[in-house]
């Protein structure tokens, strides 16, 4: 099993930390992982992306040009990464703020209204864990149990009180993801 995933969106959406939770979750299941972020000023409001690889074999290149899955959270990222999903791969996106929807027909496309759902739940910070849960529903590369452990590991001690809400959001994310017809 090898999963090459890119998560891309705005800085501040929790793109890097979502990748981090996933990488730690992979470690919990004894997989090889790599987490390679874009970095620099884009961390502070521009576009940010992170490549996460999870595999049962050693990972050679942490850099890829084509991905098994792309999670896309803004228009710029859609424009850049839609074409980089492997044939037969998966594209997951939040419809909020997307004006040009993906047009490929050789990949599976899913949507999740996580911005709206997080707002409805009254906590915009659950945005990225909702998406993570949605992703794991369609690509269960790690178990939910490992994910909860990975989540705990990636959060600083002082944020551990938010664990139950985030675990619930991961679970709930799996319920609200929809395959686009």
């Amino acid at each position: 099993m090898t999963e090459e995933l890119i998560i891309a969106g705005f800085g501040g959406q929790g793109v890097l930390s979502m990748g981090k939770i996933l990488a730690y979750s992979g470690v919990m299941q004894d997989y090889e992982v790599s987490w390679m972020p874009s970095y620099g000023p884009e961390m502070r409001g521009g576009t940010a992306n992170v490549t996460v690889m999870i595999s049962d074999k050693p990972i050679s290149s942490p850099i890829a040009h084509e991905f098994d899955t792309a999670i896309i959270l803004n228009q710029q990222s859609m424009d850049k990464f839609e074409s980089q999903v492997k044939k037969g791969g998966i594209l997951i996106y939040d419809t909020n703020g997307i004006t040009r929807h993906p047009s490929r027909t050789d990949i599976r496309i899913y949507t999740i209204d996580a911005t709206e759902e997080a707002a409805r739940l009254g906590n915009p910070r659950l945005f990225n864990t909702l998406i993570l849960g949605a992703y794991l529903k369609v690509r269960p590369v790690v178990t939910l149990e490992s994910t909860y452990k990975g989540l705990k590991k990636s959060l600083p001690e002082r944020a551990h009180k938010t664990l139950p809400q985030n675990e619930e959001a991961i679970r709930h994310g799996g319920e609200i993801i929809r395959e686009r017809a």
């Binding site: 992982v33 987490w35 390679m36 972020p37 970095y39 942490p62």
Partner: peptide
């Protein structure tokens, strides 16, 4: 380099 410095691995 920036790749190895910024990436996370086990």
């Amino acid at each position: 380099d920036g790749v190895i410095g910024q990436m996370m691995e086990k």
